[in-house]
Design a protein around this nucleic acid. Sequence first.
DNA 1: CGCAGTCAAGGAGAG
DNA 2: CTCTCCTTGACTGCG
Length: 334
Amino acid sequence: MSDELSGIELTSTQRRVSHGISVTFPLKLKFNPSIARDPVKIGYVSTNYSMGYKADATFRLKNLTEEKVIETASSNLNCLKRILKWNVSNDILFFRISSNTVPFASHPMNTANWKEELRGLLKEVGSFIRDHYLRISMHPGQFTVINSEKREVVEASVRELEYHADLLDLMGVEGVIQIHVGSGSGGKERGLARFVRGFSLLPERIARRIAVENDDRIYTLRDCLVLNRELGIPVILDNLHHQVNSSGEGLSEAFSLARETWRGTPMTDYSSQEPGEEAGVHASTLDEDDFRRYVQEISRVGDADIMLEIRDKERSALKAVQVLRSMKVGKSRT
DNA sequence: CGCAGTCAAGGAGAG
DNA sequence: CTCTCCTTGACTGCG
């Protein structure tokens, strides 16, 4: 908020990016203060291995006490804050906050009043995020299935999504909650219909944060686009899932389709295939050549914030920042 | 990085 | 219906 340039629509196609270069994009961005500053942000998932503290610590259910929940969540949030600071000083401006931040947050056994007890800490982390224009996402685990055929699974999923929205609300940040379509039981048509029904159960404050991601087994980009038409929710393209499960669209076509579902800068998930493993296995470290090709492909279509789903997390994020710097796609920072 | 087994939670497929 | 496997990453107990 301190930067007077924040939120100003840049009419030129030259956009300054965070990595000391400018990239030419055919932009049609709308005014949006929280994301207007850095068109390309690199992100990674949940925690940082090299810093020596964890933002995704948890414990076994049998050890659950109210004190333990608060203690672990406080530690996670303090670590998150330090990680975000480290990220900013390394030009990494996108982050996926761990769903483990408050362990067992939506579990019926958890009676801790974490929303009250962590209010101050959450606000503090949120201020840092806003002050530095960080882009934030969250990704609930595989057990969050709002189109399940079992009522109790849908109900638990709604509670879990509620927790994610609470966390972001208490931080006071925009933040996307990305989920998969879920169960394909009875065929995709029925699965999509169940999704629409499940989604309608969500209150607005949760629903407005949801984005849907193509998966590697059942629901393709096309299926997600159907949900965008029905519900208006944005679509996150996962390039590796798309490689394994799609209707054959090339990367730039696929990205173009996904991009149209976003009002502002779209999020994408990026990974590459781990060599020698089964199709769909995420790389253990960034394949720089593959990543360079990826950026070239999608930047022909438009800007994006890129979440790296690569196992060595911040190490690959640093590499990705270097790759962007080394690319001859723009001018040096003025 | 020691390693193997275990862990709140679902789903798909086989039998 | 039950059972196994899929899949991810972290925890935990053991050597």
